[in-house]
Amino acid sequence: MKKYDSQLFELVKKREIAPDIFDFTLKNGEIAKITMPGQFVHIAIPGMVLRRPISVCDVENDCIRIVFRIKGEGTRTLSQAKIGDKFDLLAPLGNGFKVEKGKTYAFVGGGIGVPPMLYSAKQADRAYAVLGFANKDAVILCDDFRAAGCETIVTTDDGSFGIHGFVTDALRDIIDKIDGVCACGPIPMLKAVAELCRENGKPCQVSLEERMGCGIGACLVCACKTKSGDGVEEYKHVCKNGPVFNAEEVVWNG
């Protein structure tokens, strides 16, 4: 059995769940079967030289679900796909969050960093979902996290929905009840979450993104600076060593 492959997927369900944010369900049983929480897919988009890496939001039976935001030409083209269209996905790629049995985790997502947390949260025995958005219009997937059994807390930057504040404000309130944190979102948010975890002695895993080439660790472009226990710095690669890293090893301004 291959660890990953480039294969065709069929778009079987599509919905715009917030302005410019799309929820796609793509069918390929062989790949869906081996896809783990926190991994990503690398999608070939007609007319683009490079594939686009997008995190797996969920896996159900023969299908992989991805939720992405239109960011440029590639994701715009992808958003215009029709049901029945076929896409070449290189998948599943990367390493996901390590979720241990019997422990309580907080799954912290910010904006388009929320979708990658869903499938991972489903693996935990006890989970909080702490989801942060810019405003009410940008709120996505809350019902999915609740349906997955997560105690779900939502924050918005402008207070138009849920708690007025950042995910760290909500995380601080529950930090004593959890054993670890898994997070994905903008770098300033991840830095703040990692700092809060460090202060409270909680292990923190973060999912990072970087402009990517091959997706499998051969071209070395998606570099992330890391530091080992003895202080030696090196560039690891988001596609192969990540996208999930222990927050302690990430050099945030690298």
Binding site: R211, M212, L220, V221, C222, A223, K225, E234, Y235
Partner: peptide, 8 residues
Amino acid sequence: LGNPPPRI
């Protein structure tokens, strides 16, 4: 080490 990202 190589150059800092973005590299592509």
